[in-house]
């Protein structure tokens, strides 16, 4: 491996680990559940994405074969992370967890037509 490649790999690995760390830091540092949700879904996804790109590069360069199967994990995480975030937000709204931002009005009413604030404005 040449020096440039090694520097690039190091940068990718460090950026990936850094983003993963910041995502978990958000989990501890922020105040309510809804803001905490942002850290792990975003920062962590990009963090693992960076690490997987680094892994793909590393194995493509050190062995003879091109290694692309890391793309699969990245793709899978990019598809699933928003779904789990969406479900978690929905569950939190369902339980009316306390929030820094004002909660929408009929947040707990699952399956009711019209969500929250807009509906009230329509009725007026």
């Amino acid at each position: 491996m040449s020096g440039t490649v090694e520097i690039l790999l190091s940068l990718l690995v460090l950026a990936g680990a850094g983003f993963t760390f910041i995502g978990s830091l958000g989990l501890v540092r922020l105040r309510d559940f809804y803001t905490r949700l942002h850290g792990p879904t975003k920062a962590t996804t990009l963090g693992v994405g960076c690490l997987l790109i680094a892994s793909s590069l590393f194995f493509s360069l050190t062995t003879e074969n091109i290694s692309l199967h890391e793309i699969l994990v990245t793709l899978f995480l990019f598809i699933t992370a928003p779904i789990s975030a969406h479900l978690l937000a929905k569950a939190a709204l369902h339980r009316r967890l306390p929030s820094v931002a004002p909660l929408p009005v009929d947040a707990a009413a699952d399956g009711e037509p019209g969500a929250g604030i807009d509906r009230l404005q329509d009725l007026r």
């Binding site: 993963t20 995502g23 978990s24 989990l27 559940f33 949700l37 994990v73 992370a81 978690l88």
Partner: peptide
């Protein structure tokens, strides 16, 4: 939900650790 979110984050951290 906080605990579930933490568990989900732990999964992703485990992926990162395994890749490293």
């Amino acid at each position: 939900p906080d605990r579930i979110l933490a568990l989900d984050t732990l999964y992703i951290n485990a992926i990162a650790l395994l890749v490293l």
